[in-house]
Design a protein around this nucleic acid. Structure first.
Lengths: 181, 181
DNA sequence: ACGTTGTACATCGACACCGATGTATTGTTG
DNA sequence: CAACAATACATCGGTGTCGATGTACAACGT
């Protein structure tokens, strides 16, 4: 339902109709180096989306090999993608893998204000004082840890967070942030 | 099997015996802000590990509320954790969530050379010229993208990568890198 | 006296995901 | 000419995960 695989399928098909195999190659290029997609995951996902009326398939005689099913988003599918982009689940905001997938297709939201609203949700999440390690309630800082590996986690996470905050602020500014509260 | 949840359970119990509820709080503190753990996922996972002989439970009369099952790693469980740390699955290296979980417990490997070997696997992964976006075979750089959101992905990923590479090199050095080829 | 929150566990159905395996064709390499 | 890789789809069993729901008791506020 709220998986990043479905989002990627909808996102890629929003640009142009594709058959499953091509879709798979694109998804692999996008996120495969982090989390590969098995074919046995992709095809059922396509079926799910088809069953939900979000995409339609059109069988073409196999020019190269087996017959191709060219996949096309329906009007409902296009609407559903925009909905998932505009109103992402919490996990799409907090989990970096899912967040990146969402970002990869966020341009499909026409409305700059809607795009900015999504970025602002991520901003709010990053600004929460969360850590991986605590002393009771208090989040620990890298310097307070003995374990070099745990210190690494915080060091890396902080660098990421810093870079992303900078990017978020500048992108929000260029989206014409004044348009929304 | 190779889930980060099981790794976290084994990792926390390696330090001290805990009951399920306490385990849940610790796991939530560690990774909950990114990916929350449902109770209905934790308890079956505990059962799995128990069934596999990796941990044993000892029921204590409920001091506060319901009776507690204090969980203790068996010798096999301790060995299994070290095995999972020393020979991580590919996904533990490539997926940041899983990698961070692994890092959080890597200190449980006694052998500094074994720790360094794991870090070197991550290093090799980060040094591969991978992107999220390609022009044919060639990975695209942030500057080549029009889409500001996709540019953001690359910008953030590059900042993370840079910070982590720096940390990896310095940590490998302090682990006495000379010990291993 | 009552409701809420916290502690502590458990089950169940739905479903997403994966690895293995199968089918069929074309193109390329040895 | 055989073997292999690539194209293109599909099924199946196993299992991990989740949301919903249930049980039971203590502590606390009002």
């Amino acid at each position: 339902m709220r998986t990043m695989l479905e989002l990627a399928i909808l996102g890629f098909l929003y640009d142009s109709p594709l058959h499953g195999y091509e879709l798979r190659k694109r998804i692999t290029a996008l996120t495969g180096h982090v989390r590969p997609v098995a074919e046995s995951t992709l095809y059922p996902a396509i079926k799910r989306l088809e069953k939900a009326g979000l995409l339609a398939r059109e069988t073409q005689p196999g020019a190269v090999a087996a017959p191709r099913h060219v996949l096309n988003l329906t009007a409902g599918g296009r609407q559903e993608l925009r909905r998932r982009l505009a109103e992402p689940a919490t996990g799409d905001i907090t989990d970096e893998n899912r967040w990146f997938t969402l970002l990869a297709f966020l341009r499909h939201l026409d409305d700059a204000a809607a795009q900015a609203a999504v970025l602002r949700r991520r901003l709010a999440f990053l600004e929460e004082p969360a850590s991986f390690f605590y002393d009771g309630e208090r989040p620990l800082r890298a310097e307070e840890l003995d374990d070099p590996f745990r210190r690494g986690i915080l060091t890396i996470a902080r660098a990421t967070s810093r870079a992303e905050l900078e990017w978020l602020h500048s992108t929000l500014a260029s989206l014409g942030d004044g348009a929304s509260r």
